[in-house]
């Protein structure tokens, strides 16, 4: 789990119903995330399924992304249970997704892996940011700030999964509560 509570940098703005085929097209599912070299490759293909009208997400020369924050609309991560989806975002170097709502498997996989913070915004933010705008996500305060003018937008409380997120993922949480051996 990215353990920063303050995430600052340019945002990458998406829309409603960003599905798992957009996040990581199936032709890259031959890569196994637990193999370090293939984990990095998955990062370089994050959001490779988007139409050409979108700028490349993992556009750094080393295959990572200059965008630590992804802004989405409703039903972010719908579709497949492929854990490659949150992993690709995390492996690319993204730290948080801020969306209006999530498809449940993507949300769960984000929390379980600790690859990325799946944060919910109180209102729709797709129109409040353009790709490249600087923002700051404050997880402790549940806010996202548009740095150009200081506008602050509220995030919803994390809720029941907060202990799992705080622990850093499913295994860390299960060890903390004594469900599996340390």
């Amino acid at each position: 789990m990215p353990n920063e509570t303050l995430i600052r940098g340019p945002v990458y703005v998406l829309e409603d119903n960003i599905d798992t085929d957009l996040l990581i097209p199936a032709c890259y599912l031959n890569l196994v995330p637990t193999i370090p070299e293939e984990y990095r490759k998955l990062g370089s293909y994050a959001l490779a399924g988007l139409p050409g009208t979108f700028p490349k997400f993992a556009s750094n020369p080393d295959g990572t992304t200059p965008y630590p924050i992804v802004i989405g609309g409703r039903n972010f991560g719908c579709g497949s249970s492929r854990e490659h989806a949150p992993i690709a975002l995390g492996a690319a170097g993204a730290k948080a997704v801020v969306a209006e709502s999530y498809a449940r498997i993507f949300f769960r996989n984000s929390v379980a892996t600790g690859e990325i913070f799946p944060l919910e915004s109180e209102k729709r933010l797709c129109g409040e940011f353009k790709t490249g705008d600087l923002a700051e996500v404050d997880i402790a305060k549940s806010t996202v700030t548009r740095l150009s003018d200081g506008a602050v937008f509220a995030l919803k409380p994390v809720g029941a999964v907060a202990p799992v997120i705080a622990a850093g993922g499913m295994f860390a949480y299960a060890r903390e509560i004594g469900m599996i051996k340390k």
């Binding site: 995330p33 854990e83 498997i105 299960a174 469900m179």
Partner: peptide, 17 residues
């Protein structure tokens, strides 16, 4: 449906939260 992490967890414990 679940992800790899939850599936790996079940493989070892037989349980899921």
């Amino acid at each position: 449906g679940i992800g790899n992490t939850d599936a790996g967890f079940i493989m070892g414990t037989g349980k899921l939260l």
